[in-house]
């Protein structure tokens, strides 16, 4: 089986290499990929949408349907992961059980089923059963860096019109910031800051913003996702309305991507139990 697989792969690779001899040279400006559709985007996007970043203009305006269903794909992936992994059995007795560390001495207590610490004790903190190391340096350094990562994520979303960036990238950076928080602290702290319910609602909200913008265009007399129809609502001319419409849609994408990243991490790290994890 392994030999056969290797043979098939080598044959496949050899055929592809043979195929490249008919390919246009690397960096050839007159290659087929560069001559049919893309010159239109390069020459007209600024005039049509007032967005200097052609990639953003093509992504959210000319190919708006593609991006909308792309957002639906990540929404579905988040949903699939939730359905596959989430476990909803959490008996109330186990809430207090687990490992607790005395903050001052570092001694660890194991509280069994039914046992509980006095409520509101500040001397003990709950720790994970598998991931115990406590590292002050990592915790402090991550806490210092986190606000800047989140600010940068917002900048990438908001400045996607003028520089490389946009909803997908900014959303991923924001999600990564939350995941960094979860890794450097622990899952329970993150769940307090960003509850599971909120990520699930935000996932839907992001897609809703995108689709809602499209439907709003439809209601205002334009075509689906034709942002020029928003001109009256936003009080700008149709070209600027396209630019603003792209921003609204990118914000929706960013929210959906961020929430799905965090939701995927929660489910995968805790195997769906949402109590402790990596």
């Amino acid at each position: 089986m392994k030999r056969l697989g290797l043979l098939a792969v080598i044959l496949f690779g050899a055929l592809l290499v043979y195929g490249t001899t008919d390919f246009p040279d690397w960096g050839d400006p007159s290659s087929p990929a560069a001559t049919h559709l893309s010159p239109y985007y390069i020459q007209h996007s600024l005039h049509d949408t007032a967005v200097p970043n052609i990639v953003t203009a093509v992504l959210a305006d000319y190919r708006g349907y593609d991006t909308m269903f792309e957002t639906a794909v990540i929404f579905t992936a988040g949903l699939a992961c939730l359905f596959l992994l989430r476990v909803f059995i959490t008996p109330k007795e186990t809430e207090a059980s687990g490992l607790y560390r005395h903050r001052a001495t570092g001694i660890t207590l194991r509280i069994g089923q039914g046992g509980r610490l006095p409520l509101g004790t500040r001397e003990f903190e709950r720790i994970d059963s598998q991931w115990v190391p406590y590292d002050l340096i990592i915790r402090t350094a991550c806490s210092l860096v986190l606000p800047f990562i989140q600010l940068f994520a917002l900048y990438v979303v908001a400045h996607g019109h003028h520089s490389p960036g946009g909803g997908f990238q900014g959303g991923v950076i924001f999600g990564a910031a939350l995941i960094l928080f979860a890794i450097s602290h622990n899952l329970r702290t993150t769940l307090k800051a960003m509850p599971e319910k909120r990520t699930n609602i935000l996932t839907g909200t992001g897609v809703l913003i995108y689709v809602g913008t499209g439907v709003l265009c439809l209601l205002l007399g334009g075509q689906f996702l034709d942002y020029a129809a928003l001109a009256g609502l936003l009080g700008v001319d149709p070209v600027m309305a396209r630019s603003h419409g792209i921003l609204i849609v990118e914000i929706g994408v960013a929210i959906a991507v961020m929430a799905v990243m965090v939701s995927l991490y929660y489910n995968l790290a805790s195997a769906g139990h949402m109590d402790e994890g990596l």
């Binding site: 990540i74 579905t76 992961c81 596959l84 997908f168 991507v257 799905v260 995927l264 995968l268």
Partner: peptide
């Protein structure tokens, strides 16, 4: 984005 989505579902 699709690759991230497939990776997440595959890991699940």
């Amino acid at each position: 984005v699709v690759s991230v989505a497939t990776l997440g579902v595959a890991l699940a």
